[in-house]
Simulated scan of single mutants.
Amino acid sequence: MVNKSNDAEKLARQVGDTLRRIRHDRKMSLQELATITEVSKLTLGNIERGEANPSLSVIWKIANGLTIPISTLLNEDKEVLVSRKNEGNDVVSTNGACTLQSIFDTSNYGSFEIHRAFLEPNSEYSPGAHQIGVIEYVTVMEGELKIKIQDEYHHLYEYDAIKFNGDVEHAYINPTDSVTVLHFVMTYTKPN
């Protein structure tokens, strides 16, 4: 049986170590990082020390501010990776509607990432707009998904997929009484 408390502590240390390494690589102060991410200096310091387990929305703010995929903060650096169901680093949205498991990314602040996501029954997850240049490819692996992209809705069923610019307001809605399982591929391009 997986010990979620130990997993959360391991994830908090990993995110903190990675964040500190990126900040030092970029020769940024904690205050500069706070300014570009809109996350308080105190919270960032706690994250770097592994004393805080950041929510999905805080991780998105950090990734967007640094213009990196969120999986850069979530995945361990290894040569060969096997991603198994329920063994990934779970990050939960603030409202508890969405659990994201990072699967793979490219190393060194890569240009793409792959995730599994579990959207709770009759719930909505609104990540907001991501950094400029993010393209999302979403496939429904189980269940149904309504996705709102700006003011337009798309209803997807099992194995349906959608591609869209993730740098606009969007939301994921599970209209059913069962968990919806999603597969994400996100690509990142540097703005000109």
Results as ranks from 00 to 15, higher is better:
3 N>S: 10
8 A>W: 04
9 E>G: 04
13 R>C: 07
15 V>H: 06
17 D>W: 10
18 T>E: 03
20 R>V: 05
22 I>Q: 04
23 R>M: 03
23 R>K: 02
24 H>Y: 07
28 M>W: 12
29 S>L: 10
30 L>G: 01
31 Q>F: 13
32 E>H: 08
34 A>M: 02
37 T>N: 05
41 K>R: 11
42 L>E: 09
43 T>I: 07
43 T>S: 09
43 T>F: 09
43 T>A: 13
44 L>I: 06
45 G>P: 00
45 G>C: 01
55 S>V: 11
56 L>Y: 05
56 L>S: 14
58 V>A: 12
60 W>T: 01
61 K>F: 14
63 A>I: 00
66 L>V: 08
67 T>K: 06
69 P>R: 01
70 I>S: 04
73 L>D: 01
74 L>C: 04
78 K>D: 11
80 V>M: 03
80 V>R: 06
81 L>Q: 12
81 L>Y: 12
82 V>K: 15
82 V>S: 14
82 V>D: 08
83 S>A: 13
84 R>K: 13
84 R>A: 05
90 D>T: 08
92 V>W: 07
93 S>I: 00
95 N>I: 14
95 N>R: 07
95 N>T: 10
97 A>D: 10
100 L>A: 11
101 Q>A: 05
101 Q>N: 09
101 Q>S: 15
102 S>Q: 02
103 I>P: 01
103 I>S: 05
108 N>C: 04
110 G>V: 06
112 F>L: 03
113 E>R: 00
113 E>C: 00
114 I>E: 08
115 H>D: 00
117 A>K: 03
120 E>S: 15
120 E>D: 15
122 N>K: 15
122 N>S: 15
122 N>T: 09
123 S>K: 13
132 I>K: 12
132 I>L: 15
133 G>E: 10
134 V>C: 13
135 I>H: 13
139 T>D: 07
140 V>K: 07
140 V>F: 13
143 G>Y: 07
145 L>N: 11
146 K>T: 13
148 K>V: 09
148 K>F: 06
150 Q>Y: 10
153 Y>D: 15
154 H>N: 07
154 H>V: 10
155 H>N: 15
155 H>R: 15
157 Y>Q: 09
157 Y>M: 10
158 E>K: 14
159 Y>H: 11
160 D>S: 14
165 N>Y: 15
166 G>E: 00
166 G>P: 03
166 G>W: 04
167 D>N: 14
170 H>L: 02
170 H>W: 02
170 H>S: 02
179 V>N: 03
183 H>V: 02
183 H>M: 14
185 V>K: 05
186 M>V: 01
186 M>K: 02
188 Y>H: 09
189 T>W: 03
189 T>E: 12
190 K>R: 10
191 P>V: 13
192 N>Q: 09
